[in-house]
Write a protein that binds this DNA or RNA. Structure first.
Lengths: 141, 141
DNA sequence: GTTAGACTTAGAACCAGTCTAAGTCTACAA
DNA sequence: TTGTAGACTTAGACTGGTTCTAAGTCTAAC
């Protein structure tokens, strides 16, 4: 692995702040994905990370994605039954999903007013609210 | 296949009304699943359908679920990254998803007021809006 | 320097879902 | 009643996203 200043740069600090030990692979992934709105699948990330010759294994891609989700650096987006998408935008927001192209677009949380949430019951904690608007860019025009 | 009155009963008519030719397998599945609120996976349906000795193949389970979704008799619910759930409640509604147990519960559409939807753009048709509230029945009590 | 523990890796394994090719059923015509 | 066509069902092979395993690498601390 090349020697870089892995200890002091801002991405490194961001990982530490979330309880993630920064390794070369995690930094490489974090630089491509965090601090920039991005929607991507594990496979897409794998290809992007290894564009210039294989460096990071698939197992590490999956391990890192799982870890980043667990530590609050990424969210999963479930829109395609066949694979998981990840979203680096951690601000509260929702999604347009183009059923035909598979494209995802963010919707700011304040563009959708959700009224009082129904009571979930005793001792039930709400972990998150996901809104997906499925759209079709029809064969018009 | 046993002889029953496949042509005139109400389930049969419901299938025909949705453009689905009623076969013995489709009727068996429809009777277990339609006209009753139900959340289930393909695997769960496969087991339930064949409780008393194997009758309906996995391929037919998947074919039938896909057909029923296409014809508006069922909806898919994407909450678990590893498999698809199906919902026989076709009235507009949303879901609580218990992250730990995997249980799904319906929320009536009118319990969640969604404000004006953001404009999706020119010639873009909204196919559906899915709201999932992820909950955790914490380790209390 | 050694060591321990955490991380990464290649490749095997897993499993939900799809495909294939052969067989079955049904409706209908002759 | 037989033949035929088209739609459906089936077992089992296959696919592809994801996870597991076991061995190797790295690094921080002693």
């Amino acid at each position: 692995m090349h020697h870089r200043d892995h200890q002091t740069d801002s991405v490194s600090q961001e990982l530490r702040a979330h309880g993630v030990i920064p390794t070369a692979q995690r930094l490489r992934i974090a630089r491509m994905v965090l601090n920039r709105p991005a929607h991507f699948s594990a496979e897409q990330l794998y290809e992007q990370v290894n564009e210039d010759g294989a460096r990071v294994s698939k197992a590490t891609i999956y391990n890192t994605l799982g870890l980043f989700v667990e530590k609050g650096l990424l969210r999963q987006v479930l829109v395609d039954p066949s694979k998981v998408f990840y979203d680096s935008n951690m601000t509260p927001h929702h999604h347009f999903y183009d059923v035909e192209s598979g494209e995802l677009a963010d919707i700011d949380a304040d563009e959708i007013q959700i009224g009082a949430l129904p009571d979930a019951g005793e001792g039930v904690e709400i972990e998150g609210v996901d809104v997906v608007i499925r759209v079709r860019r029809s064969a018009n025009r």
